[in-house]
Design a protein around this nucleic acid. Structure first.
Lengths: 241, 241
DNA sequence: CGAAAGAAATTGGTCATACCACTTGACCAG
DNA sequence: CTGGTCAAGTGGTATGACCAATTTCTTTCG
């Protein structure tokens, strides 16, 4: 593996992680009140400012509701958190990947992907079209290198999402991608069938070029389903073991 | 209008809003560096802690990248922000609603809604099923009261999303709903065709009961499309004016 | 002159302490 | 039962200081 920049985490990052973990794992139940900022500062041996920065972020993420004079009240993250919080649910307490979350992400991608391609076919501009074809060619040239093809496939979807001209798709894609990046290398083999499918990438690019929304959506659906089947196959082998 | 709780916003909330506005409207371009915390504190006449709380949230939202000793660097929110940031893009500088964002949200809903219904049909439990039917009945009883029917329709989808058993759908729904809530009353008339469609709600509930995923998805698609057509019709009238 | 080394300035990160503003609950007067 | 008062607890804001990483400028030396 290539060298990685050293991950520096500030104190409040650490506090944030600890608190989210406690909440997700139910040690602070919905409806409960967080310990006071002063108590948390004492317990975690950090300054109150660090606690406040972390709790503010909890509020933004939709995990707590802060009320002046009353305290920080824990919410049900399933009802109040947004898609940005999904990466935080990918790993469970024991460090294992939560497979239901992975399944959910792929299911959502299968629902969105076709419509992204459909929209891109009707709204793409020439620069995006050219970039799609360039990526298809690079992808073909990178055969035998799964990791590289995976990155190119990501870049391909990135352009497609841009071409869809839908800011909601753009932001949702960013959120899902954050989950994907976390486990990218680990799932490369599982998704290999999809990742190496240069033919379908080209078909999508061609359909987008021809403004053939129906074909673009249909091929995108088939492409996403390949990855999904790959995962289900891997999981079924897992269950047998 | 019913009495509303008084909205209190803290200083850091205000700072956060101002900074997001500046970034979204391009006065701080991607790649640029934010003024130092000390400068911001001086300029906005608040203490540095309030600035830090706000900037931390910018970092969590994906708008800036903070580097010790270097500064807070502005990112391209279109590429780095997640779906949680969508509500912040709903209103433009002049206070008008950004119609492209509304279009995008409805488009995304049309893509997800059918798959949510499909998944719900295969995974729902009895309690969720009963709740769906209860909401259908209440919705029928609330005819003539568009606002009430709108709330019941939201509750209906809420249960459906739960029943889908997909945490990604759950969180994405939460994000989209935050956008919807912001303009809920304003768009009730525009989406009226969908909101009053008790027949399709019942069809979905029935299909979910019968574990008929295909029908559930198909009817959900038709239902979402009604709302979308309502918006497009309203917008076309708008363009003529 | 140019590159390397070092010093200074700038910036984010952390800390301690104080005080203000709001909420809550207990108690009391009407 | 209502409304008022009060004290304790909690979040919100403010200062001022110092640490740590980075950037910029200056100096030094080949």
């Amino acid at each position: 593996m290539a060298l990685q920049p050293i991950a520096r985490k500030s104190l409040s990052d650490d506090v944030y992680e600890q608190l989210t973990t406690e909440i997700v794992e139910g040690r602070f139940e919905a409806g409960a009140t967080l310990p006071s900022e002063r108590e948390l500062a004492e317990a975690l041996q950090v300054n109150r400012g660090a606690i406040r920065e972390a709790v503010r972020r909890l509020g933004q993420a939709g995990l707590v509701d802060s009320r002046h004079g009353s305290g920080h009240h824990v919410l049900d993250y399933r009802r109040a958190a947004g898609l940005d919080f999904l990466p935080r649910l990918l790993f469970r307490a024991d460090g294992d990947v939560d497979l239901d979350t992975v399944r959910g992400v792929l299911e959502m991608r299968s629902a969105l992907g076709p419509d992204v391609a459909r929209a891109a076919a009707s709204r793409r501009d020439d620069a995006q079209l050219a970039e799609l074809h360039r990526l298809c060619a690079a992808h073909a040239a990178a055969a035998e290198d799964l990791g590289e093809q995976q990155l190119l496939a990501i870049a391909f979807w990135d352009v497609l999402v841009d071409a869809s001209g839908n800011i909601a798709y753009r932001l949702a894609y960013n959120s899902l991608r954050q989950v994907y990046e976390t486990v990218r290398e680990a799932v490369a083999q599982v998704l290999a069938d999809e990742i190496v499918d240069n033919a379908r990438m080209r078909q999508i690019a061609a359909a987008v070029r021809d403004a053939d929304a129906t074909t673009a959506a249909e091929v995108a659906r088939a492409l996403c389903e390949r990855g999904r089947r790959g995962l289900e196959t891997a999981l079924s082998l897992f269950d047998d073991a």
